[in-house]
């Protein structure tokens, strides 16, 4: 565990805390994409299948449980909570995510480290996470007046994988036989997807103005 990996995990944890706070404190999920939350639920389920079979560390298991529970809580709130569900932008959050799920699954069938169910699903989760934020970014472009907490959520979520890239570079240099080409490429693609958002987020922060993404 190096500082980049820990910082990345903390950014990821903070992004989820910010989102939970935003929805719970404002009793509203306006501007939040349910599609992205559901894609992340698929990512975590497919990635953490070994949650009960292989124990790595208390930290590892705890974080996996937090990610799973928080994502399902958000989905539950957005779908069933009597006050929160009415604030969901159903008409705006229309990204057809089957066009993300299917290609990622097919790619995982073809491009993986081992052709076994667990490994293909794990690889699928790596590819799917790279594009899981797209429905949320599309929704932000359609939502005028993005509230700060939602903007912060996306920024923290994007910065977590960017920090993971530094972690991979560090491990590549210090651990002789550490190779994760598929994860590295997917993580770089994931971070590139955020670059556009990062630019507008940092500019709005510098100019101290409301964040807005061009349509």
């Amino acid at each position: 565990m190096n500082i980049f990996r820990l910082a990345g995990d903390m950014m990821h944890l903070f992004s989820i805390i910010v989102l939970l706070l935003k929805i719970n404190a404002t009793r509203s999920c306006r501007g939040v994409s349910l599609k992205t939350q559901e894609l992340y639920a698929i990512v975590f389920v497919c990635r953490y299948l070994d949650l009960f079979t292989s124990f790595i560390s208390l930290y590892n298991t705890t974080m996996k449980l937090i990610f799973l529970l928080s994502t399902f809580t958000i989905i539950y709130w957005m779908r069933f909570h009597k006050v929160i569900r009415v604030t969901y932008d159903r008409e705006q959050d229309t990204f057809r995510y089957q066009f993300l799920i299917l290609p990622c699954f097919l790619l995982a069938l073809v491009l993986n480290n081992e052709f076994s169910a667990m490994e293909v699903l794990w690889t699928f989760s790596i590819y799917l996470e790279a594009v899981a934020i797209l429905p949320q970014l599309v929704l932000l472009q359609r939502t005028n007046n993005i509230d700060n907490l939602t903007g912060n959520y996306v920024f923290l979520l994007g910065s977590y994988r960017a920090l993971y890239i530094l972690n991979w570079i560090y491990r590549f240099m210090t651990e002789p036989n550490y190779r994760q080409y598929l994860v590295w490429i997917s993580g770089i693609v994931q971070t590139i997807v955020y670059i556009d958002f990062f630019y507008y987020y940092i500019r709005s922060w510098r100019n101290n103005e409301k964040l807005s993404l061009p349509a």
């Binding site: 990996r5 995990d9 292989s54 974080m63």
Partner: peptide
């Protein structure tokens, strides 16, 4: 061990 090591990230 290699396998476990490979999946130590979240």
């Amino acid at each position: 061990a290699e396998e476990k090591e490979a999946k130590d990230e979240l």
